[in-house]
Design a binder for these strands. Structure first.
Lengths: 139, 139
DNA sequence: CTGTTTTACGCACCTCGTAAGTATC
DNA sequence: GATACTTACGAGGTGCGTAAAACAG
């Protein structure tokens, strides 16, 4: 069985759960309280559960909402871990590429070709070398 | 630090990783291969990493992509667990509500009031009772 | 020629922020 | 009045599917 709710909305859920306020959550998320309100509303509708109690001075977790915080935080942590794994993989796969070519043949030509076949994205770096002479980093 | 990529796109990532094809993944996700293609493209752009190798007969995980599967699956499992926790909470909080009132005072009046204060959503059920006489389920 | 993925094209929806309204302290 | 949320509104963007193109077995 698949989930019907938007996983992204969990970020809004956590932000509101932590701050207890739409406005404060909005500041952390760099958006407006109106947007946060809508995301929470949507999440509650999708889950068919009231997650917050609307009080005059903010949002307070309901019993159900409180039970979801831990799980949501695991998801958040895993999402950040996934992001970190990218960086790890990048550094593991990064290596020094040296090029040799007869005079008159530009290194940049090969670099250009390499970038077409290799999985290269910023912040990857290639060093430019000519006959074992290192010409520095190429962005 | 917060994540920049869309957590939702991980569902598309997993579907493609498992089937090895946009079309097959699309069938499982009840959408079209075009949409799946775009979600993967967006995810790769956000993560700044190439997750799949485009082969003539399908999508194959790259080294980086393969490393993210486990983490993505944890997120998926936690998302489903979160959904399940809702159901658990619902059944724990559901209880029989009995009402007593003098003749002439409708039970429905109190039911109406109750629904304003209690966290009640479908598929919650309330039973209508009058002086301990059970009048059945009220939708 | 059947199975892919990719690209092109609009349309529709949806999300967003501004602004005004409501409520509480 | 200050601070919170809610509602209204309009614009902009974005995601969507259909359809056609490109490619391989």
């Amino acid at each position: 069985m698949s989930t019907a709710f938007s996983w992204n909305d969990l970020q809004y859920f956590l932000a509101v759960a932590r701050t207890g306020q739409l406005s404060a959550a909005a500041r952390n998320l760099r958006t407006t309280h109106v947007t946060v309100s809508r995301r929470i509303e949507q999440l509650e509708f999708a889950l068919k559960a009231k997650l917050f109690e609307r009080n005059p001075r903010g949002y307070e977790l309901t019993t159900i909402g409180r039970r979801l915080v831990d799980t949501a935080e695991i998801i958040e942590a895993e999402a950040e871990r996934l992001q970190a794994q990218i960086s790890d993989s990048v550094s593991q796969l990064r290596g020094l590429v040296r090029l040799s070519a007869p005079e008159g043949i530009s290194n940049f030509f090969f670099v250009e070709k390499l970038t077409q076949f290799a999985e290269i994205h910023p912040p990857y770096q290639r060093r430019i070398a000519y006959n074992s002479t290192d010409y520095g980093t190429f962005a």
